[in-house]
Design a protein around this nucleic acid. Sequence first.
RNA 1: GGAGAGUUGCCGGAGUGGUCGAACGGGGCAGUCUCGAAAACUGUUGUACCUUCGGGUACCGGGGGUUCGAAUCCCUCACUCUCCGCCA
Length: 424
Amino acid sequence: MLNLKFIQDKPELVIEKLKRKNFDASEIVKNIINLYRQKNVLQGQADRVRSEMNKISKKVGLLFREGKAEEANIAKARTIELKENIKQYDIDFAEIEKSIYKLQVQLPNLPHESVPLGKGEDDNEVVKSVGEFPELGGKALPHWELAQKYNLIDFELGVKLTGAGFPVYRGKGARLQRALINFFLDQAREASYEEIQPPLMVNEASGFGTGQLPDKEGQMYHVGIDNLYLIPTAEVPVTNIYRDVILDAKNLPYKNTAYSACFRREAGSYGKDVRGLNRLHQFDKVEIVQIAHPEKSYEVLDEMVKHVESLVVKLELPYRILRLCSGDISFTSALTFDFEVYSAAQKKWLEVSSVSNFESFQANRLKLRFREEGVKRPQLAHTLNGSALALPRIVAALLENNQTKEGIKIPKVLVPYTGFEIID
RNA sequence: GGAGAGUUGCCGGAGUGGUCGAACGGGGCAGUCUCGAAAACUGUUGUACCUUCGGGUACCGGGGGUUCGAAUCCCUCACUCUCCGCCA
């Protein structure tokens, strides 16, 4: 959510920058500024009436105490009209605020200067591309067949137990999952992220804080009887730790990591890239989150990108880093780097991480602020997060890329975690 | 699931109709004292919005009501805690 004052101060900037996101904000911005002016006028008037009301009330109290009941009653009579006024002001004011809010949440975050112009995913900028595609010859199997061959993942069983998109990992498949989770968490801890084990369900306020609610409600599983939502990512509970909080500037940045299962309804995405592990309703992910000082947040973003890169390097996967273009970047993000690994049997790039700086867009909604020494007013902090990493597509690439006649080779770095070197 | 208690500022906790943005204690910050520190003493210490920059307004879990006036009374919702039952 963009800051109201900012919109009012720099409407042209907002419109110009959102144009890059292919979003025409001119009408909304105009309306917001209009309503904002009205709101201020209204508040001025309402406050004056309230002020008078308060004065009279005080006077009435005094008069009664002095036994001047008659004078008191005269004063009382005057309040009848004022009361009506206040009531009406309250109604109008609430309405105008609601209108502003409705418009405000429609505006996406402004893209960072470095975001390349573009219409969609084809226009993303490849920042770097590292590693050779493995030569597998003609008999390479896609991961869903490997998973079956070595009895690692049972998709059919998942359908029986729950439904499509809920695979059952077993044997070395299950152990590989656990190994990856521990590996990622250990790496994050070494990069001084504090580990969090968050709830897997959140309340409405949290869903709202990170922007899943009210609009993207359909993406989350809703537990109606208790009005809770299954988290689509650990970002939701972890970032909401800082909701309604004023941090001390000298403690920034705050760094957290969390492993969690993630639940996504993925409504409307049936039929496309859904084979095997490519798109699931439940999957595992380790997330990293940082709360940063506005002046430092792009350094922090850089650091997070490097951290994620170190993971794919250690896993010996061919990868590339994309700087998302203005047409592909998410609603809430100012700058996003995607990580893709190459899955050699499917012969395609799979997105395994998305690292973003939201600047103050999330913080504004979360009321996440920090206080700087010597500065009276708290300021909005910047929030950043990234996957480090999402498991299923990593597993897909590992299985496909490392298949040999003897079996599937486990990358060296993972062996201490899996306890085995090969799946055969 | 049954019964009860509660939700006040950074924390503890008082306040049951007016002078309460809120006693008191703790914590934080600043000062005095000290070579320095501790102790003691003194002061200070919420957020948001509006402003003609004098000031004004709102907020004591959320919403609604009564009243000239509500942290305080009434209604309603949410949450938390305790005991019993059940249970990983």
